[in-house]
Nucleic acid binder design. Sequence first.
DNA 1: CATGAGCCTTGAATCATTTCATCGACGAAT
DNA 2: ATTCGTCGATGAAATGATTCAAGGCTCATG
Lengths: 340, 340
Amino acid sequence: MASQVVSVKDVAAHANVSLGTVSNVLNRPEKVSDATRERVQASIERLGFVRNESARHLRAGQSKTIGFVVLDVSNPFFTDVARGAERAAARAASSVLIANSGERGERELAYLDLFEEQRAQGVLISPGGNVTKRLERLRDRGIPTVLVDSPAPRPDFSSVQTNDVAGGRLAVSHLIELGRRRIAFVGGPLALHQIRDRLAGARLAADAAGLPADAVQHWDAQAPTAEEGKRLGFEIAALRKQERPDAVFAANDLLAIGLMQALLLERRVRIPQDIALIGYDDIGWASSAFVPLSSIRQPSELIGETAARLLIEESAGMDAYEHQQLQFTPVLVARDSTGG
Amino acid sequence: MASQVVSVKDVAAHANVSLGTVSNVLNRPEKVSDATRERVQASIERLGFVRNESARHLRAGQSKTIGFVVLDVSNPFFTDVARGAERAAARAASSVLIANSGERGERELAYLDLFEEQRAQGVLISPGGNVTKRLERLRDRGIPTVLVDSPAPRPDFSSVQTNDVAGGRLAVSHLIELGRRRIAFVGGPLALHQIRDRLAGARLAADAAGLPADAVQHWDAQAPTAEEGKRLGFEIAALRKQERPDAVFAANDLLAIGLMQALLLERRVRIPQDIALIGYDDIGWASSAFVPLSSIRQPSELIGETAARLLIEESAGMDAYEHQQLQFTPVLVARDSTGG
DNA sequence: CATGAGCCTTGAATCATTTCATCGACGAAT
DNA sequence: ATTCGTCGATGAAATGATTCAAGGCTCATG
């Protein structure tokens, strides 16, 4: 219980200078003579002084903390995005604090409230519910927001995402080039725009190759999880060979892993000989799956880094800021599961 | 750009009351007459007033934000812990903000600084480096800390973790009961106490069963990842049958998954007939692995929930608080990979 | 010796909120 | 009619850091 509360006042007294001088040492060290500066710094050390961010912020009016409201921390994609955001923030001497909404609308709003009350420098959000109204309010208060992995609701908001239509096209073009013709798209729920777009891209690729309109069949998943993938995998494996697709495009890698497990358990189905399989996201251990998994890679860290950069730029020049909606182009990573 | 800055003062003016009354509506609504309260609340709505947390905090001296400094957000274990912590925090009307140190000591310290400057209600931390000094300083400043998944450095800190020695014993007892005698422990680096303890528990179990001292062989891993598991799996599969272990205990599930992939690729090795395999953590999709994986389950959410509860209790009664070091007992989850 | 320039330092004002002693009004009891 | 008590509302003080106009000191120059 050494030093209960050490304030600038205490430091000033200890170093025999005034409050203002201590503040200058802290914020404009070049304005203070060497001798004084060193004396003050020694006192800071000695007393273990740490700025009270609340007081600083109250007066200065701006914070260096960026909030990131995330749909689901356990999704490796968001983890990667967060890492990228952290890197960009660090360059601007800002910090990123992650809040997990767990796909629950009321947590999402509660955390937006929190960041609003804290007058955060800005907020990154991958929204679950409809938060447009709330984001407008944050902006009115001078807190900019950038949407991550989601389209901007209006042209005066910035957003950073992957072009999922292009990703879907990429995956299915790859399968068609390998000679596959009966293609299953496994994914859901379609309420998620990411998944809708990937399916749309898949159909565009089939069209472009001159395949019939029903070449891409949609198998709906309740959730993008390995369990669902496994369930649907058994359904697919149970089909007779003539009816069975010869390629499966899964809406994300977790689904693909589940599918792979189910298909391989049914010894009749070989990957990629009987069914070529491709996922989406290229999560860390797609490459170390039982059959290394082909996938569509999103530049997750770059998405986070860019989103944070846009946010910081906007927070610097709030009024005259030109909003941007950025889409990154995903790339194909071909591995054994499509024949490498 | 509706309402630039709305303060209590504006609300007070609009509702025709004094500052103090608005504050009372906000903090002690029972002290204000119904008529006045409703009038004030209407003004708050109308003007879109949101408390300035910095000012509130500055005066009130206490915050309702708990910081959680995490070693690695991409590890599902920590994600689960965070979810539990959030649940306990929500009950006390507190929020949890996650900061990812990414196993980098300087980020860890930077985030501790941040929470110190913000005068957080408390800090949960799963430390990578040695942070004892820093935690002492936080306490001096009235910010309690609880260690998560790590032992308390001194009896006057609280900690919540799993009994990893018991977990190791559980895993290896299970293998021995199944008749296995040549057991490999795959895990590392031993610098992590979690992994050291699991190995120690494994050896205790072997001793207790009267097995020779070298019954449990240690295969060192550079990191607890699927890639490392795969690498070591190929080494193990390459051994002649007489030299090969008949059971493998992996220090975590990621390692176990990698091992499984490598062993199954070598067609000579069957799981569990030739080698029984058990992991640790029971992460979400251990059950949907190619061969459903036996594992030692830690009560991850409970750990987080308990840690947050201890933290909140300590922050309430700082001085007279009795610190606790809690250890949860893990449980065995037997699946196909050890013969179900 | 007086003056001015340059460089530091000072102290008061400010930020938005909470807290608390005080005040006013109204009704009940003496 | 006076006193007392209660309930609500009030406004000044306090919180800790920052900013800025004003003042002080030193040294060089006329």
